[in-house]
């Protein structure tokens, strides 16, 4: 079972992830419930999706440009970013752009090949929810958020870089 971590705690997951079929065709949409749809589905039938009763989330694949959803943020309750392999680091930039440039405030979920040893950097780039690979010990993984207690750079979790915070302290 995949486990959801949200705000550094194990959480129940009410969302259903809809994927394209192997042949690329779009999935059918369940009448009710909270769903996370792939970008092409949203682009093809935004009207129908908005008319449904459940909440609407959207997921971006690693090559999909977050600019494509910048105008749709108000319609969404969740955005997920897919990591086909954990070594495909495009999603880190996607997350920062969503948070820092397009102003996404809602849940930002990392899905796909997500493991304990990436949680710290993912969280610094603005993810607050993570669907961990099934085989992993989710409880032990929570400690990964505390791997480091400080960071040099500007990031979503610490928008002011260390050198400015340090200067403010000594001022």
């Amino acid at each position: 079972m995949a486990t959801l971590i949200k705000n550094a705690k194990i959480a129940a997951d009410s969302w259903q992830l809809l994927d394209r079929a192997a042949d690329g065709s779009l999935p059918t949409v369940p009448a009710t419930g909270d769903i996370i749809v792939p970008l092409p589905l949203w682009q093809a039938m935004a009207g129908e999706l908005l008319a449904r009763s459940g909440r609407l989330g959207l997921w971006l694949d690693s090559a999909e440009d977050p600019a494509l959803v910048a105008d749709s943020l108000e319609a969404l309750s969740l955005i997920a970013v897919h990591f086909p392999q954990f070594t495909d680091g495009r999603g880190y930039s996607t997350a920062r752009l969503l948070r820092e440039r397009y102003g996404w405030k809602g849940e930002l979920r990392a899905i796909g090949d997500i493991q304990r040893d990436q949680l710290y950097y993912l969280s610094r780039c603005g993810f607050d929810a993570f669907v961990l690979n099934d085989s992993l010990n989710a409880k032990a993984a929570l400690s990964a958020f505390n791997d480091f207690t400080e960071a040099y750079q500007t990031s979503v979790d610490r928008p002011v870089p260390l050198f400015r915070r340090r200067a403010a302290e000594t001022a």
């Binding site: 954990f86 930039s93 950097y121 040099y152």
Partner: peptide, 13 residues
């Protein structure tokens, strides 16, 4: 060095 050390966005280039 400091900027690049544990830069969270660029660990999986």
């Amino acid at each position: 060095r400091q900027w690049s050390t544990f830069h969270p966005e660029f660990a999986y280039l």
